[in-house]
């Protein structure tokens, strides 16, 4: 399986230009909030967790719309489905490669956003941990959404409608972990729940994504 991952990462590296767009979208949307709501640091630090989470969620949904579409368009999706290896594993490798190329930049850029929103630096670790878990869940959900709409042309509009309701628990626990930390309270409870959500998604979603891919290619 690591050979597959190596090949996927090599492909991503060679086509790295395509993976810039979601990151620019993420940073751009974050910079709209001060323009809309005024630059006062007190206000911005208040809304910082919410903005970062909604922004990361929207960027993930936009980014993952095409996760399986390139495989579908060049025919390698058919070969993936005909492989005797368990499809869930192949999907998991594809999802991890997608996380590295699409979600990791969002996590690495979070400190920049924290800076823009005058976010108290001591809470940065909580922000990063919770963002890693959140993007993990969003990557899995994005993969499922991409698999469900892989045959459709206009899936970019449909994907948010499918995924955002499913992502609300991740949004709630993710944003509130940082909110609690900001108020000096103990953020561990939401972080534990977020980790539990991530592992539940890790167990359930690849199976559903594999089924969705098979359904998409059914005659």
């Amino acid at each position: 399986m690591n050979g597959l991952l190596g090949a996927q990462l090599r492909m991503i590296y060679r086509a790295r230009g395509d993976y810039l767009a979601p990151v620019i979208f993420y940073v751009l949307v974050a910079s709209l909030f001060p323009l809309a709501l005024g630059p006062s640091p007190r206000l911005l630090s208040l809304i910082a967790p919410g903005v970062i989470w909604i922004d990361a969620t929207l960027a993930s949904v936009v980014a993952f719309a095409g996760l399986f579409r390139d495989d579908h368009d060049d025919g390698s999706l058919e070969q993936m489905l005909l492989s005797p290896r368990p499809l869930e594993l192949i999907v998991l490798v594809r999802v991890f490669a997608g996380w590295v190329s699409l979600s990791l930049p969002l996590v690495l850029l979070a400190p920049l956003l924290a800076l823009w929103f005058s976010f108290p630096p001591p809470i940065l670790p909580v922000l990063l941990v919770s963002l890693v878990l959140t993007t993990g869940c969003l990557t899995l959900l994005g993969a499922l959404g991409s698999a469900l709409t892989v045959g459709l042309r206009h899936s970019l509009v449909l994907l948010p409608v499918l995924l955002l309701p499913l992502a609300t628990p991740v949004l709630i626990f993710g944003a509130h972990a940082v909110l609690l930390a900001e108020r000096g309270l103990d953020p561990r409870t939401p972080l534990y729940v977020l980790a539990a959500l991530f592992f539940l998604a890790l167990a359930l979603i690849p199976k559903a994504t594999a089924a969705a891919l098979r359904v998409a290619l059914e005659v």
Partner: peptide, 17 residues
């Protein structure tokens, strides 16, 4: 799945490799 080799309209190869 191991019994079949399928060649469809699409080449089934990755354009970046």
């Amino acid at each position: 799945r191991g019994e079949v080799a399928f060649l469809g309209h699409l080449e089934g190869i990755k354009s970046m490799l």
